[in-house]
Write a protein that binds this DNA or RNA. Structure first.
Length: 710
DNA sequence: TTAGGGTTAG
């Protein structure tokens, strides 16, 4: 191996410094020797030399050694160092003992830290601060806060460092009341202009969900820095106000601050959450301008933004241009394909990944489950079990979705056993997925038993899952009973009402439907478009079209789905005229009809025997609205001509279909021919039918014979 | 000589 100049120099230095070890050494030369070892990164050796000398060393050397122990997580060396310090320094200065506490804290040895703290003959404010920080950094925020109270009880004055550390702990345990008290102390002690404390207050108020206070404090910071901006953007993102997060990001940029990579990431994630492509692209521009495109965090966030905004090609371009692709960027792009329904390409990427972790496995599995590709999902689960030991709560939720999707309750029970054995029972997501699985598999008793076992953990989602299971399996009465129980424990949400109203609609349970409607009105729930749709559907199915029309007309705005619900409701009640009127109003309101609307219109024409009008609408669909007629529209036209006895039109229509007529269509035509005595056309229909479906030939022959015998 | 934020992928 080549010996370079530096290593040669080090050897010479070592030789020089080690040489006097056999003689009485001056402290200076030993110190020099220690420093030489430190320069070469030999901390252990440096401390062992120190320990061989029963003399106090300069304070600066101890300080430096403690610092290095912290940086290298060297707990053994730190203990030796403290031992040397307290043994050979007659009066170790408090600041050095504080450094020892800090080192123990950074190495995660809180017992050592606290022991030293308790045994110190004398403490200063720094000792308290260091011990509080040691607790806070190791996840013992409650202990940090207790020590802060003790500090106050002992009459030690906290300073800005104490407050910053304690506010951090308050944020971690969401201690809003204490945060407000500390805020008051910050003002009282005259630290209002401290930017660190200002940012900490923004942070803690944001984490505790009082974003208005967070924003007020932010606006009061005289000179916010990059951290302050980062905090406010992040807090807006976390409370789900992506719009304000992005707006603050742009304000920061306008005020000439350079955002941190995390701030870019937060702003991009905010764009993803809102599918705000335009803003996302603007941020991409800033990323490029400020040379952040090679930053791992930023580039992965950009990939995520384009994926969530549906521009997979741009995401792919960024991924392809990355100099070094890491696990996260691979997972981001692979997941992008998976969640866009392109599972085949996602799987190709998955197979190419240089490394994978539980998140990448889950992302691929999620792609299959979201697309209801249960066979692929199942195969993938088995592969996953063979290839990796990593399984987390997300994996379990996805596997339970697969069990539900293929209605395999036996496999679901095995997963339940795994969950029980591996301590996932108290995870609310897993618990709710398990409940959903039992419900979807129709094992309602198991669902109910598990629901009661969830007891403390269950939430509104659990109640909704239980209600949905019963409602879906035609146990509307029981669902209503659960709804009554639910109100003692959890506030129903719009999903609850949606489920219950759909159950009532399917059971034609008008009284229950009215009760739910009344409950919502009495309790001030907003009747949004989705809920109005559910109410319209329920009332129509229960034959109360006038109620449905009232609810429909009172809607502040109506989308095409709501219009379609009303139109179909009228069709089911035989009110074709009203449908045709509604269609006119819909157009006046500027809502464009879709293929469902046209199906409703054609059904209405059937109700009203309006063959000519139906034909006009059918033609208008593709000519004026660019909607390609689907099978159901052709079926409607055949039904319309058949019912109206327009045999010539029917013959022309069926013979010009852009596809082979189906068995059902030919049967309908044959029946119409029989009814209207169209023998030649009927024979043609029979022949076509028999060629397609020889298994029911006999029935046709019988019909034919019956007709010939007349 | 002790302080704040942020970890992008399911």
């Amino acid at each position: 191996m080549a010996v370079n100049a530096a290593s040669m120099l080090n050897r010479l230095l070592q030789y020089k410094t080690h040489k006097p070890q056999n003689q009485p050494n001056s402290l200076k030369s030993v110190t020099q020797s220690i420093l030489t070892h430190l320069k070469s990164g030999r901390l252990q050796k440096a401390v062992s030399i120190l320990f061989a000398y029963p003399e106090p060393f300069p304070h600066s050397l101890y300080a430096r050694l403690f610092h290095l122990c912290s940086a290298n997580d060297a707990i053994v060396e730190a203990r030796k160092l403290e031992s040397h310090l307290v043994t050979f320094c007659p009066l170790p200065p408090v600041f050095l003992l504080n450094r020892a506490i800090e080192t123990y804290g950074k190495c995660g040895c809180l017992v050592d830290a606290r022991e030293l703290f308790d045994e110190m003959p004398e403490r200063d404010g720094g000792s308290w601060n260091t011990m509080i920080t040691a607790y806070a950094r190791n996840g013992f925020q409650e202990k940090a806060l207790c020590l802060f109270s003790e500090m106050n009880r002992e009459g030690i004055f906290p300073n800005e460092i104490t407050f910053a550390s304690v506010l951090g702990s308050c944020g971690a345990v969401l201690e809003l009341v204490l945060s407000r008290q500390i805020h008051a102390m910050v003002v009282k002690y005259g630290y209002s202009n401290n930017v660190v404390l200002g940012s900490s207050l923004v942070d803690v108020y944001g984490k505790c969900g009082v974003i208005s206070d967070a924003r007020r404090i932010f606006d009061q910071i005289e000179n916010p820095n990059d951290v302050s901006w980062n905090v406010i953007v992040r807090r807006y993102l976390e409370i789900g106000d992506g719009k304000e997060a992005v707006s603050m990001f742009f304000r920061m940029f306008r005020e000439d601050f350079t955002p941190l990579n995390f701030t870019f990431s937060n702003a991009l994630v905010a764009c993803s959450s809102m599918s705000a492509l335009k803003e996302g692209m603007q941020i991409h521009g800033v990323v490029f301008k400020m040379n952040f495109e090679r930053d791992k965090v930023v580039s992965s966030s950009l990939i995520g933004m384009y994926v969530k905004c549906g521009i997979l090609e741009s995401a792919r371009m960024i991924f392809d241009q990355l100099g070094s692709k890491d696990l996260i960027s691979w997972t981001a792009i692979m997941s992008g394909y998976a969640m866009s329904g392109r599972t085949r390409e996602a799987r190709e990427l998955f197979n190419m990944m240089p490394e994978r972790n539980v998140i990448s496995w889950n992302a691929m599995l999620a792609g299959y489950t979201h697309l209801f590709q249960w066979e692929d999902a199942l195969k993938f689960v088995f592969l996953m079990r063979r290839m990796t030991k990593e399984i987390d709560h997300v994996t379990l939720v996805l596997i339970l979705n697969v069990c539900a999707g293929i209605s395999d309750v036996e496999m679901g029970k095995q997963v339940h056993g795994f969950i029980y054995r591996h301590g996932f029972c108290s995870n609310i997501f897993v618990g709710n997925a398990l409940l959903d699985m039992y419900g979807k598999c129709g094992t309602l008793n198991s669902a109910r038993v598990w629901f009661y076992q969830m007891s403390q953990e269950r939430d509104t989602v659990s109640w909704n899952a239980l209600l949905t299971s019963y409602a879906r399996h035609h146990r509307s009465e029981q669902a209503m009973t659960f709804f009554n129980e639910m109100q003692w424990e959890s506030r129903p949400c719009k999903f609850t009402f949606g489920t219950l109203l759909a159950a009532c609609a399917n059971m034609f349970a008008l009284n229950h439907g009215k009760q739910i409607h009344g409950f919502m009105v009495r309790n001030g729930y907003e009747l949004d478009m989705v809920i109005r749709g559910a109410l319209v559907d329920m009332y129509c199915k229960c034959r109360c079209v006038l109620y449905a029309l009232t609810i429909f007309k009172e809607a502040a705005s109506r989308d095409v789905v709501l219009w379609n619900t009303m139109i179909f409701g009228c069709c089911h009640n035989g009110r074709g005229r009203e449908v045709l009127e509604l269609v006119g109003l819909m157009e006046e309101e500027g809502v464009k009809p879709d293929h469902v609307t046209f199906q409703g219109i054609l059904l209405a024409c059937i109700c009203e025997h309006e063959a000519e009008l139906g034909k006009q609408y059918f033609n208008s669909m593709s000519n004026d609205y660019c909607i390609i007629p689907r099978l159901e529209h052709y079926e409607c036209m055949i039904e319309l001509y058949s019912q109206c006895g327009c045999m010539e039109e029917l013959e022309k229509f069926i013979k010009s279909l852009p596809f082979e007529p189906t068995v059902a269509m030919l049967t309908r035509v044959f029946d119409a021919c029989e009814k209207h005595g169209a023998v030649r056309f009927g024979e043609w229909a029979a022949e076509q039918h028999n060629q397609l479906n020889p298994s029911t030939l006999l029935r046709f022959e019988l019909k034919d014979r019956r007709k010939m015998g007349r």
